[in-house]
Simulated assay, not measured.
Amino acid sequence: MTLPKPEVGLIIGFNYLSRREHDQGRDNALYPRPCAIILSRRRAGVRLTIVMVSPITHSAPTADEQALDIPLRAEHHLGLNDARSWVVTHEANEFV
């Protein structure tokens, strides 16, 4: 199976390690979740692509968190379920 080129806006399944999980001492995420690619760049002189993702969640942001509400029509287009969703913007994971 050929993987798609990582592009900004692409939704992928990823074992996102949240800040809360990290602070609890976890090295691995509890489960995979949909994530939005928010940055994709090639490292100069190296054949590696650095990707940064933000998780998509059903949990509404609290007063000290930031997130973008995903319109229901966009959720359907992306293949997400009918529950209200947000793209978390106050934290992100980066990987090669």
Score class of each variant (00 low, 15 high):
residue 21 E to G: 01
residue 90 H to D: 15
residue 28 N to D: 14
residue 79 G to A: 05
residue 51 V to T: 10
residue 76 H to V: 06
residue 36 A to H: 02
residue 37 I to G: 02
residue 26 R to T: 00
residue 89 T to F: 02
residue 31 Y to F: 11
residue 94 E to P: 06
residue 76 H to Q: 11
residue 23 D to H: 08
residue 68 L to G: 00
residue 73 R to E: 15
residue 31 Y to V: 05
residue 75 E to F: 01
residue 31 Y to T: 11
residue 34 P to W: 01
residue 30 L to N: 15
residue 39 L to Y: 11
residue 33 R to A: 11
residue 60 A to F: 07
residue 91 E to M: 04
residue 36 A to Q: 12
residue 44 A to C: 07
residue 87 V to F: 03
residue 28 N to Y: 13
residue 42 R to D: 07
residue 44 A to G: 03
residue 32 P to A: 10
residue 19 R to E: 12
residue 95 F to H: 12
residue 74 A to L: 14
residue 28 N to W: 10
residue 53 V to L: 00
residue 74 A to V: 14
residue 67 A to C: 00
residue 80 L to Q: 00
residue 25 G to P: 13
residue 87 V to T: 07
residue 47 R to P: 05
residue 29 A to R: 00
residue 43 R to N: 06
residue 49 T to L: 09
residue 39 L to M: 08
residue 20 R to I: 09
residue 53 V to E: 01
residue 69 D to F: 12
residue 69 D to W: 10
residue 24 Q to R: 11
residue 94 E to Q: 14
residue 50 I to W: 09
residue 62 T to I: 12
residue 82 D to C: 05
residue 18 S to D: 05
residue 85 S to V: 07
residue 49 T to M: 04
residue 35 C to S: 12
residue 59 S to R: 14
residue 51 V to C: 05
residue 51 V to K: 03
residue 79 G to P: 05
residue 49 T to R: 13
residue 81 N to M: 00
residue 72 L to A: 14
residue 72 L to F: 13
residue 66 Q to V: 07
residue 92 A to H: 13
residue 25 G to S: 12
residue 23 D to I: 04
residue 76 H to S: 06
residue 93 N to R: 15
residue 83 A to H: 07
residue 19 R to I: 14
residue 78 L to V: 02
residue 36 A to W: 03
residue 34 P to G: 00
residue 94 E to D: 05
residue 59 S to W: 04
residue 29 A to Y: 04
residue 51 V to D: 05
residue 48 L to Q: 13
residue 95 F to T: 07
residue 75 E to Y: 02
residue 34 P to N: 01
residue 50 I to K: 10
residue 68 L to M: 10
residue 30 L to Y: 11
